[in-house]
Design a protein around this nucleic acid. Structure first.
Length: 410
RNA sequence: CGGGAUGUAGUGUAACGGUUAACAUUCUCGCUUUGGGAGCGAGCGACUCCGGGUUCGAAUCCCGGCAUCCCGACCA
């Protein structure tokens, strides 16, 4: 991609109404556009990152047997009345809308109800279980106060997986696998070492649910970290759970954190409400055991910006960066063009800064965009034998011949 | 949803109740430049959020609305 042709441009200053670091950098870099408070559009660069995050999530969900589907945003109120979650008194962040004939519809803030109802058509025998399905889809929540840039919006992306199991053991087996899948996701996108599986309130059917909390001063949650076993306890249950549930350690470190994901055992709460049952081997009607597993890909993107960026801009981990190489041409049009073609031929994702702007502006933009490898081609670099390569998260650069660089990439 | 603050070119700021709303940047054109947002010159760009009111006169004061941000509450 030639930067002169890229749809978005960078800007030097962030709009004054954006305070959060993630929104400031993402807007300055041209990754997102703010529409209204808590509602952001994803522009080409941002969409590239988002899709890569989604693919990391898909890979792990598929690995534990999840099958991807895509459900609707518009929801029938009758479905929600079955669990008493239609009323605005019970759920205060509904977005609701109307059909032409006046019928009120809801815009989904989660999908337990509709998916449980749908599953009645597809689960009838023990042979149909276990099954798990997920989607990456837009959710709507009428937050009283949007904040923290793209990390807490009114319209946002959510990966929500739902598991359906024959019994508790089968459910627990899947639940444990999902923990590993989640850890893999956070490790892959580069925030594993600061993301803690956190014990949180579990509801009716299990003692705990588990959140995945990433340490961040921009976080809204307070957690207590056990350094012995790298887990944490959410502030909401610290009164009844004053020590680490894994090792009993009572020396816990209080930290601010942002919730990157959560997994939840639902038991039979929804299967009871919708009478979602299967016939076991003996022909007996048995309630299905359910679980739900969420991650917000957009929020994850915000968390990555928030935690990995420096004073100059974003630092994308390679696996989710919009491009792998940022090629800066400093007055070597012919050589740069040729090199760019070679990179393309190799299938390297490269953003080629071919613009006629000053070197300083190219450097500043490169730091802001956060592409992992910055490669400069200039009179100086050619005189020294090739191109100058610097990783975004390192300070030292090295001169390397064009051939060596091309070979090194694959 | 309670409390607070702020709305002025695309962006960031300025302007005592008193000319044609200023500056920087972006953008366009020309020339010069090319290792950290480079220089010179010329231009484009604003019903000062919307609606009322006070006044000879309102970006400025008052009222209402809307929007945005912050603190809190909420967060399935």
């Amino acid at each position: 991609m030639k930067q002169s042709k890229l749809f978005t441009k960078t800007r030097k200053e962030a709009p004054k109404d954006e305070v959060s670091k993630n929104a400031q950098l993402l807007i300055r870099g041209g990754f997102v556009n703010k529409e209204i408070a808590g509602v952001y559009s994803f522009l080409p660069l941002g969409l590239k990152v988002l899709e890569k995050i989604n693919n990391v999530i898909r890979k792990e969900m598929n690995a534990i047997g999840g099958q991807e589907l895509f459900m609707t945003v518009l929801q029938d109120q009758e479905v929600w009345k079955q669990t008493n979650r239609w009323s605005d008194e019970v759920v205060d962040n509904w977005f609701k809308t109307n059909l032409k004939n006046g019928t009120e519809l809801g815009m989904g803030f989660t999908h337990e109800e509709p998916i449980t109802k749908m599953m009645k058509n597809h689960i009838s025998s023990f042979k149909d279980l276990p099954i798990s399905v997920y989607q990456i889809q837009t959710k709507f929540r009428n937050e009283a106060r949007a904040k923290s840039g793209i990390m807490r919006g009114r319209e946002f992306f959510m990966k929500d997986l739902y598991s359906f199991s024959k019994n508790i053991d089968e459910h627990n087996e899947f639940y444990e696998k999902s923990k590993i899948a989640y850890k893999n996701i956070f490790n892959t996108v580069g925030i594993g070492d600061m993301t803690y599986m956190t014990f949180a309130s579990g509801g009716t059917f299990s003692k705990y649910s588990h959140e995945f909390q990433t340490l961040s001063s921009a976080g809204e949650d307070t957690i207590y970290v056990c350094d012995k076993c790298s887990v944490a306890i959410n502030d909401e249950i610290i009164e009844e759970q004053k020590s680490c549930p894994e090792c009993g350690n009572t020396e816990l470190r209080k930290e601010k954190a942002i919730e990157a994901g959560n997994i939840f055992s639902l038991g039979t709460k929804f299967s009871e409400a919708f009478d979602l049952t299967y016939k076991n081997e003996k022909g007996e009607e048995t309630l299905v055991i359910m679980g739900s597993y969420g991650i917000g890909p957009g929020r994850l993107m915000g968390i990555i910006v928030e935690t990995l960026s420096d004073e100059k801009g974003i630092v994308w981990p390679e696996i989710i960066a919009p491009f792998k190489v940022h090629l800066l041409n400093l007055g070597q049009d012919e050589k740069a063009e040729e090199f760019y073609e070679q990179l393309n031929k190799k299938g390297v994702e490269v953003l080629f800064d071919d613009r006629e702007v000053s070197a300083g502006e190219k450097f500043a933009d490169s730091d802001l965009l956060g592409i992992p490898y910055r490669v400069i081609i200039s009179e100086k670099s050619l005189a020294e034998g090739g191109v100058e390569v610097k990783k975004r998260n390192e300070t030292d650069s090295e001169i390397i011949s064009i051939d060596d660089f091309l070979n090194k990439l694959k």
